[in-house]
Design a protein around this nucleic acid. Sequence first.
DNA 1: GTCTATACGGTGATAGAC
DNA 2: GTCTATCACCGTATAGAC
Lengths: 195, 195
Amino acid sequence: MPDRQPATRRTGAQTRAEAQRIALELFSNQGYEATSMQQVADALGIRKASLYYHFRGKDEIVRSLLEGRGDEARALARWVHEQTPSPTLARDAVLRWVDSSSREKLRGIRFMNANPLLVGTVARRAGVDVGDELAAVLDALLPHDADPRRRLLLRMAFMSLPAAVAAAEPGTPDEVTVAAARAAAESLVAAAARP
Amino acid sequence: MPDRQPATRRTGAQTRAEAQRIALELFSNQGYEATSMQQVADALGIRKASLYYHFRGKDEIVRSLLEGRGDEARALARWVHEQTPSPTLARDAVLRWVDSSSREKLRGIRFMNANPLLVGTVARRAGVDVGDELAAVLDALLPHDADPRRRLLLRMAFMSLPAAVAAAEPGTPDEVTVAAARAAAESLVAAAARP
DNA sequence: GTCTATACGGTGATAGAC
DNA sequence: GTCTATCACCGTATAGAC
């Protein structure tokens, strides 16, 4: 297949960035394993071998997509530790988390929702586990001998944005999804506080 | 690789059933695409070609795993339509759904959580879409011009079991997960009722 | 029903010219 | 940076003997 659009001129960094955009889209819609490097290269308008110039391999694309993740979770953990304990601390922390997660991150959440196993593996291999960070936050918000049911409810509150994205019908406007996630977070954190 | 445990004697139906059990487990832990027919056959203690005697292909295993799904959703839709409208109908329907879903179904939920895209594709190809059934239930519970935010919250209430499974740390006892899901469902349906 | 053996396509990945 | 060409491998799937 020698005929193809004369690849629009791009600098290296631009090509890399666009490849990330395209890969994120394909991985979200078809899944990581079901997406081939060939598909990504085709959508990019370059040959597969050229794609390998920008990324060492398929998994490196994923890692590049995930880099920086975990920073926010760590920041939240730090913030929680700095606060003086109060009855509304859990609620404040949850809303802080959901609100910080909601800016432009919906695309990333869709990707993570579509490839839960992959994200877990890569994150573990990359050293940082978001789940662990979240656990640290929970430990600061709940007594260590707390009812595991209430602990899980609080976890669900923190994960209400991904849950909302997963529950939303295709085509739901982002603002609706975010609003519902916020309301769900408030509701769940309250449920976690009830005995 | 000619040496292998002398396959424990099984009837055809037993082999098929055990293959389903094993495949469900592997698909849940590693994902569908990342699991090869070779792995399933190995875990079963038979040759790959023998596995193809019981199932036409890999996707037929998934379909066999999913068959019967959608029946419960349809039953719920029917039940809702039979009820006389009342202020607590939504709450009753949600709890009915979560409770009915919670018996022995956690394994299936884990599978669906691990392979969201696959399940969507297969279900669509198999004709029945669980999402559509759920939409029908929602239409009966909410006015058609209802706030989309409240509609999504109600959807989240129905999906609180998968959400709880997704949020649970590995090793969480099933009873804890189910209890949290129930509490979350109640909480979310209440949130959906608030303006 | 289970086996051995094999066909076939596509995949991730690399070498090296331009 | 992008290309052509090529690789080894592994996946699904089938044929046919027992």
